[in-house]
Every structure is written in structure tokens, then in C-alpha cells.
């Protein structure tokens, strides 16, 4: 067994709450005019920071270059978290790496999104019984979207991004707000996984 257990006591309840929120969103769009414009632009321009931890990275170059060309959707790579909109976790996360990912995520500017990439971020994938990796990313960071597969093909990646775009422009993407709202819960999980060695800048 892994050296730690996960916090899932009130998960079902939270899921219900989230679903409720989503349903409410569909009824009334309470975004302001400016927010709508911002979301519209945000959906069409996504700077991504790909955190290439595992084998997932190998699927990104073909997605970016001439065969699949993700730039035609306004998606492009960026060098630092300050500039990026979406954090792409492409593979398994060892506990040590998680620490860096959390710091990177906190350095990003809101609105910011997290995409889990491949089965490793979903349930551990082939590392499901590893002592040193985490199994579920959304316990530590507010994952907005998973792309399942081992590895997901470029088509899947582009589909995932298009889904993300839809979510952004309809305004029902709440991950970073959720991270701020339930910060204690995330921090507790992070602390547990990292044995208290979380470093954040604020």
C-alpha cells in the first residue's frame, strides 16, 4: 500500500455541490459584460505551460507542429508560469515533483486552469501502486479537465482543449476559484502527500 491514505470523506457531497452549481449556471448567466468579453478572449487564446513529467510529453510536439497544429486554435506554449493560462500535467507525479507543480500553479495568474493528461493523473495509471507517486491529481490541484488515455493521441489532446475552450467561454469553469475557496482542504491533502514540505509563496 502507499505510505499515506487520501482524504475523501466529503467527496460525494462536494461533487453534488459542484453539479448543483453547474446546473444553476445553465439557468442564469450572471457574468458581467466585461467578464463575458474576457472569457471570450480567454477561450480563444490559451497559453499553456506543459509540465512534462512522464512519457506524455512525447505526444505534445506532434500536436504543436505541422501535422496537428494546435496553434490554429490559439493555443501555444509559453516559457514561464507567469505567462501561462493552463498548466498541463503530462504524466505521473512523484511526490517531489508535486511540490514543484504546486509552486508553479500558485505562481500562475488567474484565471488559470489545470489539465490532467493521461491515466497517471487520473488514477495513477501503471504507477497505481507506487510508493512515491500520487494517484489522483485533483486532490492536490483543482483539475478542470482530464484527458484520459495512456497516452492520449494528439486528436484527443485537441479535443480536450476544445472542451476546455467551451467550458471557458460558457463561464462554468471554476477550478481556480474552487482552489481559493477550499484552499484548506487542498492544503491538507498536499501536506499529507508531501509530509508537510509544501512551499507556497504567499
Amino acid at each position: 500500500m502507499p505510505g499515506y491514505s487520501l482524504h475523501r470523506e466529503n467527496e460525494d457531497q462536494l461533487l453534488d455541490e459542484l453539479m448543483q452549481q453547474v446546473r444553476n449556471k445553465e439557468k442564469i448567466d450572471e457574468r458581467s459584460m466585461w467578464q463575458k468579453i474576457a472569457d471570450w478572449a480567454q477561450a480563444r487564446s490559451i497559453y499553456m505551460l506543459h509540465y512534462c513529467t512522464g512519457c506524455g510529453a512525447i505526444e505534445l510536439p506532434p500536436t504543436m507542429t505541422s501535422r496537428f497544429d494546435m496553434e490554429r486554435f490559439g493555443i501555444g506554449p509559453m516559457a514561464t508560469p507567469r505567462q501561462a493560462d493552463v498548466l498541463l500535467i503530462t504524466g505521473y507525479l512523484a511526490a517531489k515533483t508535486l511540490r514543484r507543480v504546486i509552486l508553479t500553479y500558485e505562481q500562475m495568474q488567474t484565471p488559470k486552469f489545470v489539465m490532467g493528461f493521461g491515466s497517471c493523473t487520473l488514477n495513477g495509471g501503471i504507477y497505481y501502486d507506487s510508493y512515491s507517486t500520487i494517484q489522483r491529481l485533483d486532490l492536490y490541484l483543482p483539475v478542470d479537465l482530464y484527458i484520459a488515455g495512456c497516452m492520449p493521441r494528439p486528436e484527443a489532446i485537441i479535443m480536450g482543449f476544445n472542451r476546455l475552450k467551451q467550458m471557458i467561454s460558457s463561464g462554468d469553469i471554476q477550478g481556480w476559484k474552487d482552489y481559493e475557496k477550499r484552499h484548506d482542504w487542498y492544503r491538507k491533502n498536499q501536506d499529507k502527500a508531501l509530509k508537510g514540505e509544501v512551499y507556497v509563496t504567499r
Binding site: Y51, T80, R82, R100, L103, T104, Q107, T201, R202
Partner: peptide, 12 residues
Amino acid sequence: VGYLENYTAGEV
């Protein structure tokens, strides 16, 4: 933010 809150390629 402070000067030390800086991009360090994920390092602390």
C-alpha cells in the same frame, strides 16, 4: 509580491 517570489523553474 516579494523579490523572492520568482520564477525558478519550479524549484523552491
